[in-house]
Simulated assay, not measured.
Amino acid sequence: MNEKSIGIIAEWNPFHLGHEYMVRSIREAYGNSFIMAVMSGPFVQRGEPALFDGWTRARWAVEGGVDTVFSFPVLSVLQSADRFAAYGVHLLASMGAHILAFGTESLEAEALLDAASFSLTPSHKEALHEALGEGLSYAEASYEAMKSHSPFLAEELSKPNNLLGFRYAETILQNHFPMTIHVVHRDMERNISASAAREELLHTGNTNLLPQKAQEEAAELMKSGCYTDFSRYSDACLLSSRLLSEKNLSETGLFSEGLEHKWFREIGNGDYETMLRAIKSKRYLYSRLKRIGAQLLLSAPGPSPFAAPPLPSYARLLALRRNRSEALNHIPLPIITSMARAYKKADKETRRSLEMDIRASDIRAWCQHSPLYRGGRQEFYHSPLIVNK
C-alpha cells in the first residue's frame, strides 16, 4: 500500500462531534490515506463498561470518516494511562501505521517529542527518583522532574490529552517505531466531551453533541433500554469483591503497598461508590480504584491476567468502509473476523486475551438497562459491520 496509513487510539464513548472534527482534520491533511483505529470495546480505560456496544460505536466512527475500526483488547484497555498508551501504540505499529494521530489541548508535535526525549534521559530518571524519595505521588514527582527541563512543558502536561499525547510520543521514541505523530488541537471553546454526552444521554435520553445519525440512534437506544445501567455494574463489582478473601486479593497481583488490606476492610459497605470513596486517597486515585474493581470482576481468583498482560498480537475487526477493504491485506497482524473460529485456533496466550474480551462483553450485556438486551455470548454472534458510505 503506497498511501500513508494513519492510526488512532480511541474510546469513542460515544463518537461525538469533536471526534468527527478530528477525523475531518486528518482527512484534510492527508487526503484519501487509510485511517484505522483501535477502540476500547465493552470496557473503557477509566474502569467501567462503555455506554453503548462496540459494534455500534465503531460503525458511528466509520460513518464519521474513519476507514476501519478494530477492537482494543480489554487486557490492554484496563490499564493506567501510560500503559494504555503504550499498548495502543504497540498495536498500531504492529498493524503498520505510519502516522499516529490524536488530539491535544495545546501542545504541538515538536513540544511533545521534546518532552518525550527528555523523559528517556538519565537526568529525568534521577529527578523523578529524587522527587519520589521526598514522598511525592508519582504524578507530582513527574511534574517536578519535567519542570527541571521545562516549567512550561511541566504545566502543559497536567492537561489530560497533552499528557496522553506525551505518552504516545514516549512509546514511539523508546521503541524506535518508524512512526510520526499528527496533532489535532481540540476546540477548547466548545470543548465537546464524551463525558458530557454520556451525562446528557443518561439524564435526558438525548444529546446534540453527536453527529445527526448517531444522535438519533443513541436516543432510540436509550429509549429502548439498550445501554449500560451503571447501578447494575456497581452492584456486580461490589459482589465480586465480597466473594474474594483477603488472601485472594493479595494473590491477584493487582495491589501494591498493602492496598488489598484496605480494600478488604471496606467491602462491607452497602454501596460500591461509598466503598471506593472510603479507599480513595492522594496515593490511590479514584481512576485506579475503578480499574482494580473492573479487573477483579473480569478475573477469576488467582493471579490476574491484567497484572502483566502481553502485547496485543491480533487485530479484531469491528467495522469497515466497504470500498477500503483491500487495505486490510496490508496489515501484518492476524485479522479476526469470527470470534468462534479465532478462539478455536488460538494459541494459549491469544485465547486468554480473547477469553477476557468475551467475559467483558458478557458482563457489559448483563449490565444493560433492559432485560431484552442482557443475552450473553454476543461476541460469537456478531460479524464485523460493513458500511457502504
Rank of each mutant, 00 (worst) to 15 (best):
S94M: 09
Q212S: 13
G302Y: 06
R57F: 01
V62N: 04
A307R: 12
D53I: 02
G376E: 09
E189Q: 15
N248K: 08
W366S: 02
K282L: 09
I172F: 09
A61F: 12
S338T: 02
R324K: 14
P371D: 12
E260P: 12
P312Y: 03
K213T: 14
L113P: 04
E11C: 00
L202R: 03
F43E: 06
S142L: 05
S76M: 01
A365G: 07
G253D: 09
Y286R: 01
H149Q: 13
A196R: 06
T207F: 06
S142R: 04
K344D: 15
A109D: 13
A346Y: 05
A61P: 06
L51P: 13
L173H: 10
A116T: 04
D271I: 03
F43W: 14
M275I: 05
V23P: 04
H203D: 14
D271T: 00
Q378D: 00
V89A: 04
E156K: 15
A81W: 01
L120G: 05
S325G: 01
D53E: 05
L113T: 04
L372H: 06
A214N: 00
L244H: 11
L296Q: 01
G96A: 13
A360C: 08
Y272E: 04
I358Y: 00
L298D: 03
P14N: 09
A300D: 06
K262Q: 08
R24K: 15
G54H: 02
L254H: 12
S383N: 13
Y272T: 02
